[in-house]
Amino acid sequence: MTPHILKKLDSDIASLRSRVQAMFALALQQLEDSVILFEKCHREKGLAVAELEPRLHELQFAIDRECANMIALRQPNAGDLRIAIASMRIASAIEAVGNAALEIAGAGERIHKSGRKPLSESEELVGQYGAVQQMLVAARDACQKLDAGALSVIARTRLEQSRESSALIERLGARLEAEAGRARVLAEEIEIARCLNRIAALALAIALQVHYMARGEDRRHQPLEELLDEVAGA
């Protein structure tokens, strides 16, 4: 490969990584704003979440185009090809985080529009947000540093968060059956809990792609406990 093509390939990869980080920044802002709306009834945050969505889509489209062009024109080696493939998968996962944040904002808006305050579980939902946000930030940092070792930490956090989320959703479901007068708010809180759980799963998916970029090991669809045992022992 000529020095000119190598230089262009390095430039393409740097651009890809920069756009991925920009997507992370937007999705994290959307998530933060959506939870502020739910927790504190700052309803102007709903508009802020929606306004960031087109920018997120633009970045995802740009990443897809850059990856396609890089593969077609630069003849990347195996390592650089993994970066291109994983970057597209990560961009798709981040875009899904933005979609989940929009759903959280919508649920929070409906709760406050109905004149009902969030119930006692709102504190636990905000706690879930904290854990999910930390996972997403860890995934962002791992992507920036190409840190395959972060998968172990994120997988361990995901395992604990998943258990807590399942217990919370079960409690909310029990209250939904017992407290018919609060059914609307409870249903919205269940939706928020499910969205946060989905974002946690996406953070793990991103970490798996970073691991793939760095080590060439595709561990998607591996049971979480098995994955954690193998990665921790590596």
Rank of each mutant, 00 (worst) to 15 (best):
L16Q: 02
L16I: 00
R17M: 14
R17P: 02
R19K: 14
R19S: 11
V20C: 02
A25W: 09
A25Y: 09
A25E: 10
A25G: 09
L26S: 03
Q30A: 01
L31P: 00
L31K: 01
L31F: 00
E32T: 11
D33E: 11
D33R: 13
V35R: 03
V35W: 01
V35C: 07
L37Y: 12
F38Q: 07
F38E: 02
E39S: 07
K40F: 06
C41W: 10
C41E: 15
H42M: 10
H42Q: 15
E44T: 14
E44A: 15
K45N: 15
G46A: 15
G46M: 13
L47E: 15
A48F: 03
A48W: 08
V49K: 05
V49M: 03
V49A: 03
E51K: 14
L52A: 11
E53A: 01
P54T: 02
R55P: 01
R55G: 09
R55H: 14
L56A: 14
L56C: 14
L56P: 07
E58H: 14
E58N: 12
E58D: 14
L59G: 00
Q60M: 13
Q60A: 06
I63E: 07
R65S: 08
R65I: 04
A68S: 08
A68L: 10
N69I: 13
M70F: 10
A72I: 01
A72N: 14
A72F: 08
R74F: 04
A78C: 09
G79S: 06
G79V: 15
D80F: 05
D80Y: 08
R82K: 12
I83V: 15
I83D: 01
A84H: 05
I85K: 01
A86P: 03
A86G: 08
A86S: 10
M88V: 12
M88R: 11
R89K: 11
I90E: 06
A91T: 04
S92K: 10
A93K: 01
I94C: 04
I94E: 06
E95M: 05
A96S: 08
A96E: 09
G98A: 06
G98K: 03
N99K: 04
N99L: 04
A101E: 12
L102K: 12
L102C: 04
G106Y: 04
E109V: 04
R110I: 09
R110S: 13
R110A: 11
H112I: 03
S114E: 14
R116L: 07
R116Y: 10
K117F: 12
P118H: 04
P118G: 08
P118Y: 11
P118I: 05
L119S: 12
L119T: 10
L119K: 12
S120D: 14
S122I: 00
S122G: 04
E123M: 07
E123I: 08
E124Y: 03
E124F: 00
L125M: 06
L125D: 00
V126D: 05
V126C: 06
V126F: 01
G127W: 08
Q128H: 02
Y129N: 00
Y129W: 06
V132H: 01
V132F: 00
Q134I: 02
M135S: 05
L136P: 00
A138M: 13
D141R: 10
D141W: 05
Q144T: 15
K145Y: 10
